[in-house]
Design a protein around this nucleic acid. Structure first.
Ligand SMILES: [Mn+2]
Ligand SMILES: [Mn+2]
Ligand SMILES: [Zn+2]
Ligand SMILES: [Zn+2]
Lengths: 143, 143
DNA sequence: CATAAATTTGTAATAATTATAATATTCTAT
DNA sequence: ATAGAATATTATAATTATTACAAATTTATG
């Protein structure tokens, strides 16, 4: 296991997750890419290095990371789940043209909760949709 | 077609949607229930009255309503799409215990968009998760 | 009525995720 | 070091929501 993976292995160990090779690599992909990848994205990338890798292992690992609080599910797509290791509060913007998902800062406490008296709130998500600057530029030129 | 359906038929007609019986009934269900139902929910309810109803028709109608701007998709669940005919800006709270989804007022313009300069924003969603008052009460008592 | 257009329906295809059980690996105690 | 227990990985099948497709039905139009 190379140097950059060592810290992640430790991180898993600290959270009582055995740092097996597939697990470290899944976490590494999430941390390095920060792309909110799908399970499929992760599998397709890692299977090149780990030919024996099973998609089930990717799903198992992601479920484990989410259950232990090391990752979060991002539900901005209709059909597929995406995963995020940035645990600090932030919003997600999805470009309807190229599909990419970008983080943006948002002060979630600014959002009032009138009308939710008596509700226990565990999680607050802010999801925007639109077109990113790159795609807007492309529309102006080639479009 | 009964009286309450007549207004909805008109509403469809005004939006250049032929007010067929299944379409009026799907819209009526959305308007009356305001429950953010799934396609399955709608189908199971309406098929009792319209035995010939096909689930494809429900999906077709929902797609039509969304495309023409008469309904919106609510993507608060991981796996299934829900539908909403309330078009004014509001947030959605999902109870993790009983699964119900409730609307709440939210001033979406309050959410800053620093970090999204140059982005064209089409849609802003606010999704909360937690436990509703009824389920909180049940936890305290029946545990 | 005849014909064309639109709608509905049943069936099959897709695709993401989960369930299950066999196999392989790792841990623990002797 | 080794046996047995616990855990992790894998392949496969099952589940489920949604979409694709084409035949059948209904509705509109001349
Ligand atoms: Mn993020
Ligand atoms: Mn709503
Ligand atoms: Zn883009
Ligand atoms: Zn509840």
């Amino acid at each position: 296991m190379d140097n950059s993976s060592q810290g992640l292995a430790n991180y898993l160990q600290c959270n009582n997750i055995r740092p097996t090779y597939p697990r470290v690599k899944v976490l590494e992909f999430l941390v390095v890419q920060q792309n909110h990848p799908t399970a499929e994205d992760i599998y397709l990338h890692l299977v090149r290095e780990i030919p024996s890798l099973s998609k089930t292992t990717v799903y198992n690992t992601l479920k484990l990371l989410v259950d232990r609080g090391l990752a979060k599910v991002v539900n901005i797509e209709e059909n597929e789940m995406r995963y995020d290791v940035i645990l600090t509060k932030h919003g997600h913007f999805k470009c309807e043209s190229c599909g990419k998902i970008v983080d943006f800062p948002v002060n979630i406490e600014d959002i009032g909760t009138e009308g939710l008296d008596g509700f226990k709130i565990h999680e607050k998500d802010v999801l925007f949709r639109g077109v990113c600057p790159q795609c807007l530029g492309r529309e102006k030129n080639g479009g």
